[in-house]
C-alpha cells in the first residue's frame, strides 16, 4: 500500500509517497499560480515513484493551503502532521520548533501525539519571510546568510520586533559600517529569541527538533541553541516533516479502518486544478 502526504505551504509545496519508507518526494514553489496546481507536483512525484494515482491508498493534505487539494482524502493541520513526521524521524523528541515561510510554531509532543502547541500571531517577524525581506535589502543570498553570520565576533542588538522597523535598523547599521556578519548574527538572534519566547510558553523539554525552511539557516539554529541551553536536532530535509507526517497519518487511518472493518472515508480524489469557488 502507498500513502501520500501533500504539504501545501505558503511558499513551498511538498509531496511524499511512502510505503514503509519514503519512495519519492518533490518540493516545488507554491507561487500564486501554483497554489491551484498542487496536482502537478503530485503528478511529478507519482512519475518519480513510477506509480499510477489509482495505486495510492490514501492522500492526506496539510499546510496553509490544505483545502486547495482536490485529490486529498482528508485534510489534517500542519501541527498534527509535523508532530507525527518529527516523531517518526526522532522518537525522542518532546518539542518541535517549526519556522516556515509565513509562520512559526512550537509543538509539544508525547507518545507521538500533540499535547500542546503555539503559533505566532499573524506577524512576519520571526519567520522565513522576515529573513527573505532582509536578504533582499542587503543583497545577500538567503542560503548563505546562516554561514556568513557564524563569522561574527560581536553581534549587534536588533531590538525592534517589527519587520519594517527591524529592516530599517539593519540597513542603518550597515550604513554605519557595521560588518554584515555582525548584523546578520544580530538578526538571527532576534528571530531566535522571538521564536524561543513563544515556544517557551509550552515549557521546552528535551529533545528539541527544529524544522521548516529556516532550520536550514545555521545561524538561527545556533542562536536557538543558545536560548534552550542544549543542542537541538535538525532533520536532513527540514522541509519534508509535514508531508511525511501527513502520509503516516493516512497510513494509520487506513490500517485502523482495515483492522476494525470500518469503511475508509475518502475524498473526491480529483487529480486536477483546484477551484476556489465551489
Amino acid at each position: 500500500m502507498y500513502f501520500v502526504g501533500v504539504d501545501l505551504g505558503s511558499t513551498m509545496t511538498k509531496v511524499v509517497i511512502m510505503d514503509e519508507a519514503v519512495l519519492a518526494c518533490v518540493i516545488g514553489p507554491t507561487g500564486a499560480e501554483h497554489r491551484r496546481l498542487a496536482y502537478k507536483v503530485m503528478e511529478e512525484t507519482l512519475r518519480q515513484a513510477n506509480l499510477p494515482f489509482d495505486e495510492i491508498s490514501y492522500v492526506v493534505a496539510t499546510g496553509y493551503g490544505r483545502i486547495n487539494v482536490p485529490f486529498a482524502d482528508k485534510q489534517i493541520t500542519e501541527i498534527t502532521c509535523h508532530a507525527k513526521g518529527v516523531s517518526s524521524l526522532f522518537p525522542t523528541v518532546r518539542t518541535a520548533i517549526d519556522i516556515g515561510g509565513q509562520d512559526a510554531k512550537g509543538i509539544k509532543i508525547a507518545n507521538g501525539r500533540v499535547v500542546g502547541f503555539v503559533m505566532n500571531d499573524k506577524c512576519a517577524a520571526g519567520t522565513g519571510r522576515f529573513l527573505e525581506v532582509i536578504a533582499n535589502d542587503l543583497g545577500v543570498r538567503l542560503e548563505e546568510m546562516g554561514e556568513l553570520s557564524l563569522n561574527s565576533k560581536s553581534r549587534v542588538g536588533i531590538s525592534s520586533t517589527c519587520t519594517v522597523f527591524a529592516a530599517q535598523e539593519v540597513v542603518s547599521r550597515i550604513a554605519e559600517g557595521t560588518p554584515i556578519e555582525d548584523v546578520l548574527a544580530g538578526l538571527h538572534e532576534a528571530i531566535a529569541s522571538r521564536v524561543y519566547r513563544m515556544v517557551e510558553r509550552l515549557k521546552i523539554e528535551r529533545d528539541v527538533v527544529v524544522t521548516g525552511g529556516v532550520a536550514k539557516n545555521i545561524g538561527v539554529v545556533k542562536a536557538l541553541e543558545e536560548h534552550v541551553g542544549f543542542p537541538v536536532l535538525v532533520t536532513e530535509e527540514p522541509l519534508l516533516t509535514g508531508a511525511i507526517g501527513a502520509a503516516l497519518l493516512g497510513k494509520e487511518l487506513t490500517l485502523n479502518a482495515l483492522e476494525s472493518g470500518r469503511p475508509i472515508e475518502r475524498g473526491a480524489r480529483r487529480l486536477e486544478e483546484a477551484t476556489f469557488f465551489k
Binding site: S154, R155, V156, G157, E200, G229
Partner: peptide, 15 residues
C-alpha cells in the same frame, strides 16, 4: 531556564 552563551560571540554593550 539555563542559558549558555557562545563564548566567542559577545553581545553589544548598550550605550
Amino acid at each position: 531556564m539555563s542559558e549558555q552563551k557562545n563564548p566567542e560571540v559577545t553581545q553589544e554593550v548598550p550605550k
